[in-house]
Each structure stands twice: as structure tokens, then as C-alpha cells.
Amino acid sequence: MFQRTEPADCSIEWDGAVLPARTGEPLAAALLAAGVVRLRGTVLSGAPRGAFCMMGACFDCVVQVEGAVVQACMVAVTPGMKAAP
């Protein structure tokens, strides 16, 4: 697990749940800090996946943000951001 050293300053929605977050941090970081580890199942086998590389390389943290398919590690949090698996 990971703990914050700087306080959250906003909230985001993940799959309908409201989570604390910090403006400008990577979405994947906000999710991990809130204890959300599993982000999706693979298309092929449904195997669970979460953030892995945090630098836009692996595409394991792909999620939906406002209808667009994005890498959660490459998207900066904005207050009220709505994300889902």
C-alpha cells in the first residue's frame, strides 16, 4: 500500500465511489492512495490488472475517463473527475 505525505485537496469518482485526490497528480496515484489496486480485467482472459509501470508504457492501467479510454498513469487528476473500469 501507499500513504500520502501531502493532503488531498479534491475528490474524484471511481466507478461511482467518491475518493479523495490531489489536483494534478496522476489518476493512477489517486486510486492507489485510496486503496484501489485492481483497475480492470483483461479482454482475453478476464485476469485482474492494476497500475504497473506508471510511465505510460504497459497499458495495464487503461480506464475510462469521461467516456475516453486513457492510461490512468498519464492522466492528471482534475477536481470531480469521473473514472470507471
Partner: peptide, 27 residues
């Protein structure tokens, strides 16, 4: 290694640098 919760050391360093996240618990 594909399980959620398994990441790169570099990935964790990025979490530290970009969001101030530190390892805690059973890391």
C-alpha cells in the same frame, strides 16, 4: 507478476515523485 499490487520499483518512485506517495503496510 501480473497481479494487481505488483509494480515496478521505478513505478513506485514515480508515485513518490509525482504524488508524494510512500510505501506503507506490507511492501
Amino acid at each position: 507478476w501480473t497481479l494487481p499490487g505488483v509494480m515496478g520499483v521505478g513505478a513506485a518512485q514515480i508515485l513518490m515523485k509525482s504524488a508524494g506517495l510512500l510505501p506503507s503496510g506490507a511492501v
